[in-house]
Design a protein around this nucleic acid. Structure first.
Lengths: 346, 346
DNA sequence: TCGTGCTGTGAGAGCGCTCTCTTGGATTCC
DNA sequence: GGAATCCAAGAGAGCGCTCTCACAGCACGA
């Protein structure tokens, strides 16, 4: 096979090996290996000679051989459950993944992307446990995908998003500080003058849904404001519209709205306008996510920006530390940023 | 090191090897290897015994060892130039990448994601040529990133998007049929009754910019309509607005507009409205890309949908064939789909 | 009966690297 | 000055697998 290859494509120079570098530098394989791995106990002149040979031959270590001998792969798996992959076009995920890839680009680790589906989950499990990777990052939309949590005992794993179940709390995860972000948005509405602040919460079986509601409550409590004005949606625009309808139907005054995500805020926008109310004149509105809707909406939506790329980078950082057996916090919460726009003008 | 590991984490069962499977099945290593690799010349009962042992031990082949011995890595690199990565949140790219990953998930290939920057390009080149991957897919926004084209002589590479330069035409690529899509959009405008159809073209140093303009021209030519109403933008909403202003300033009638992407259509929308003109009443508008803007705009934008996930899947397919030395077309154009919305109502 | 051909299985080398152990020359100390 | 110490560099085993080659065992025809 390899012979055949070199026959029909004579242009290929042979890929240089450690052995060849050693010969070129006039030292042993072991010494070259030391230089490549930056061992301190090598004479300076020898280091120079070896580096010179490496440059001349254009040598790159063969990862497979290195991995086989050292029993580390320098590979990190990025596991994306298929349900999440479908939502891949969600800029948030794309950005998280980008953050991971960028952070890893400056290390010696390589990123292996796996799309796992239910039918493939056994294959994925085996791959992860088969000594093919040094660690894994699981990004997922649903906390249910924490089915990989158990693998955490056999392999360093970092999750994106906090787990819902306490039983999975042993795992390492990086998440956005949803509660704090929601509180900031709510307090912002209050500081602009709103006194009757409603919220459209996310599903109460998803951590972001729970945490953002809790943040809203917390901010209201600090101000001593009423926290009974809430309805639940499922993060879709339609559910946001429905929830807004229910809120208005209560017949109580509302002059501020915190929607647990921008999509639901979009739904609320249309219902508010339907009712002949103005934003921010009658109701100030704040969202969460800072996706495209916020900036294109009229009026532009005040929202909470999630540091998605940084979140990805952090996940990579935590995992690398875990792999290198340094100590890391199990829980990392990234802080959010308020993006003020026209929807909450005073 | 490995001793230390097994000491402080006694729970880890040893990762099973071929050798262990062979012992368990009472055959030689070579036979197990044959079974694993589906060699035809093994007795049925032996195959069963080996498979049984594999299942019992939960054996997974070690990729590093396999790769070292076979001189194939079963790894495909996904190279994303950093300039493109920055635009990662572009749903189009995210979706292409998802398509690649999904297609590869059902093969034995593994996807290795590399973000290459100018400063890292040498590292990337070496990595690719260092025998660490069997092939590469380069997705990029700029055709300038075809700097990897030369690597195509040493490694199977598939590009996303057609190259600008003829000198790179030797490479394999998969692209959307931009010209055909533009022609369909333009003809659609004409069929709705527009007779003075302008276009806001993309940059004329990028293939999509060129091809979509050509498609517009082609459709007009078939109808015998005027093709002088065109201005160039750079795919941003601002440039779209500017171009629209210039078009209107010409003082000639315009009752149809094909924008080379949805973002520029967005810019045109605002200018059209500024001028007190209505869509589609005065000017019918069609875009290209089918991104979020199209569906949320008022009126909803008629546009050309690009089969992004399929495009990714096709790239994976072409590359795998290339690696396996099957014959493949150098050029694959994916067809687009017209999405009719309110902006081109008759 | 023996030679010939075929086929399923085993033996063993070797892929490119790491890492332990060994070696030998320089340095230090009494 | 000789023994003890140290440390840079080399020798060599072995990581888990593939793949070539050799070798039994069998069938068949002469």
């Amino acid at each position: 096979m390899s012979t055949e290859r070199s026959v029909d494509e004579p242009g290929h120079p042979p890929v240089p090996t450690l052995e060849m570098v050693a010969a070129a530098a006039g030292v042993s394989r072991a010494t070259v290996s030391r230089v490549v791995n930056a061992s301190p106990r090598v004479t300076e002149s020898v280091v120079a000679a070896v580096n010179d040979a490496i440059a001349r031959l254009n040598y790159v270590p063969n990862r497979a051989a290195r991995s086989l001998a050292s029993r580390r792969t320098q590979v990190i798996a990025l596991v994306v459950p298929e349900t999440t992959a479908k939502l891949f076009s969600d800029p948030f995920f794309a950005s998280v993944i980008q953050g991971i890839a960028m952070a890893l680009a400056d290390t010696d680790f390589t990123l292996n992307m796996l799309i796992s589906s239910e039918t493939r989950s056994e294959k994925t499990r085996r791959y992860l446990l088969g000594g093919n990777v040094d660690g894994a990052i699981v990004v997922s939309h649903h906390s249910g995908d924490h089915s990989y949590a158990q693998l955490g005992q056999s392999l360093p794993i970092v999750f994106g998003g906090r787990p819902l179940l306490a039983s999975e709390s042993g795992s390492y995860f990086v998440d956005v500080d949803n509660a704090a972000g929601a509180a900031v948005a709510t307090e912002h509405l209050a500081s602009r003058g709103s006194r009757h602040i409603a919220t459209i919460a996310g599903p109460q079986d998803m951590p972001p849904g729970l945490d953002r509601l809790a943040g809203w409550r917390h901010a209201l409590a600090l101000r001593g404001l009423d926290d009974s004005l809430w309805e639940v949606g499922d993060f879709t625009p339609e559910s946001g519209a429905e929830a807004m309808r229910r809120l208005l139907a209560r017949g109580r005054p509302i002059d501020g709205l915190f929607a647990a995500n921008d999509q639901m805020a979009a739904g609320a926008y249309s219902v508010i306008h339907e009712h002949g109310l103005s934003i921010p004149g009658d109701i100030r509105v704040a969202g969460f996510d800072n996706n495209y809707f916020g900036s294109t909406a009229v009026p532009a939506l005040t929202t909470i920006d999630q540091p998605s790329a940084e979140l990805g980078a952090k996940m990579a950082e935590v995992l690398v530390k875990l792999i290198e057996r340094q100590s890391v916090e199990r829980v990392t919460l990234m802080s959010t940023r308020l993006v003020e726009r026209a929807s909450t003008a005073p």
